[in-house]
Design a binder for these strands. Structure first.
Lengths: 239, 239
DNA sequence: TCTTTTCGCTAGTGGTCGCTACAGAAAGAA
DNA sequence: TTCTTTCTGTAGCGACCACTAGCGAAAAGA
């Protein structure tokens, strides 16, 4: 589809500064003090949340600006004044998603001492998160990318997924190095496997799998991991 | 996006009959005998293959009719005369894909006697097929669906994926019933797991994973399966 | 009150979308 | 040749796309 009217270049400096300032609504007790003109009539955070919802549900390409303005309850000029353009809004949505729903996986990983327990918890928790009622199923980062005509958006999403895989590799390698996993284990393969199951579960969630089914899949998938070395066993079962 | 100008209803009976006849180019030695008017100047099968390629690469939504006509080397009226509309063309592409690239999985499954060996072969073969040079990576059925605005197309793809899972369940249950897998094994969970790894691998192929990595993932994922009962062991190792 | 600053709404911009009317070109039948 | 049938290319249909100019309204400071 190729972004139209993207030949502006000249944007008005003050307007951009205003948007940047708006992102952190108050970075101190009295940072920017008082805004001068007419105050905004809608809540920026609420509007961003509405945008997150609709992007999550339909994906980037399939969500039109009029879809967004209808959902956010504002006119197109207000959207562009507050968020820049569709791409910038989506970028902000990605950050917001990472702060909220998207952080479930990382927090689950850090809640356990071994990589195995951490990844198992991660998969079991996203099994729930992917099918929670009240918001779209599956992972925004995975589903908003496919069928994307805009190469920059597509690449940034792909980069994020690959960065996640790289994080998995480092986390697993650390446990191999510390003896929590056998030295002959392949961190890259284990990471790819987890990532594949992760992405596959997200896809299945879109296709109607239940939370129970997905959790069982997550539990089953971890049986593929190599057993912990005998030396490390006692450490992971302290009681 | 919602299909525009879809308010035709009245299509011209002869034209549709002609298209249906064209699908099977010759269902007998001299079926329809001689065509009357000006002959078609392009090869229908070749054009369909070009369409398959571009749909596979970009997905349904992101592929425009002008993309198609450019790739197929014909004008829009020729495309519409030969294939109906964009949706019908895509439906034919799906059938063609199932006949060719998409049949790899099913054939691999049937080439082995046990479900375990069959699915392992399937995963290992699609690990290669998903990353083969010369055609787009990953699975058309999985990737052409996401971000799809057209609910009918989206639903038909989802139905196809779920039908595949149902086939997996039947195949595994048959081996449980025949004693090739332990009676306490859960066919539905095993099937979901395979499907998840399957879809996840396709996604990773799009993100740049190598054939080697994907094959290792496939091999690893199968370690999650329960061991065959001792009674069935000797049968699966006949030599 | 008046001025300044910013907001939001109306009404559009050019562009691409899927799709088609129409006229000419190319074949067999008369 | 002439008629009929079918295909092909040009040219353009209305609808929607992302995006914005311009103006009046609203809220702050003076």
């Amino acid at each position: 589809m190729v972004e139209k009217h993207a030949d502006k270049q000249q944007v008005d400096k003050r307007q951009v500064d205003k948007r940047d300032a708006d992102k952190q609504q108050a970075d101190g007790p009295k940072a920017g003090s008082k805004p001068r003109g007419r105050p905004r009539s809608f809540d920026r955070a609420t509007a961003l949340e509405k945008a997150l919802r609709i992007f999550w549900e339909r994906g980037y390409e399939a969500t039109s600006v009029s879809d967004l303005t209808r959902a956010m309850g504002i006119g197109p000029p207000s959207l562009y004044a507050a968020f820049g353009d569709k791409r910038s809004l989506f970028a902000e949505v990605l950050v917001e998603y990472g702060r909220t729903h998207g952080s479930v996986a990382g927090r689950a990983l850090e809640a356990e001492t071994t990589a195995r327990a951490g990844f198992e918890r991660m998969l079991r928790e996203v099994a729930t998160a992917f099918t929670e009622p009240g918001h779209p199923h599956g992972c925004l980062v995975i589903h908003a990318a496919t069928n994307c005509t805009n190469p920059e958006v597509e690449e940034s999403l792909r980069a994020q997924r690959n960065a996640n895989v790289a994080d998995f590799v480092r986390r697993i390698q650390a446990d191999i190095d510390s003896g929590q996993l056998p030295p002959d284990a392949d961190a890259r393969v284990l990471a790819r496997h987890v990532a594949a199951v992760f992405q596959g579960m997200s896809q299945q969630a879109r296709d109607g799998a239940s939370a129970e089914e997905l959790e069982q899949v997550a539990r089953l998938a971890m049986r593929a991991w190599p057993p912990a070395p005998a030396a490390a066993r006692t450490e992971s079962v302290p009681g």
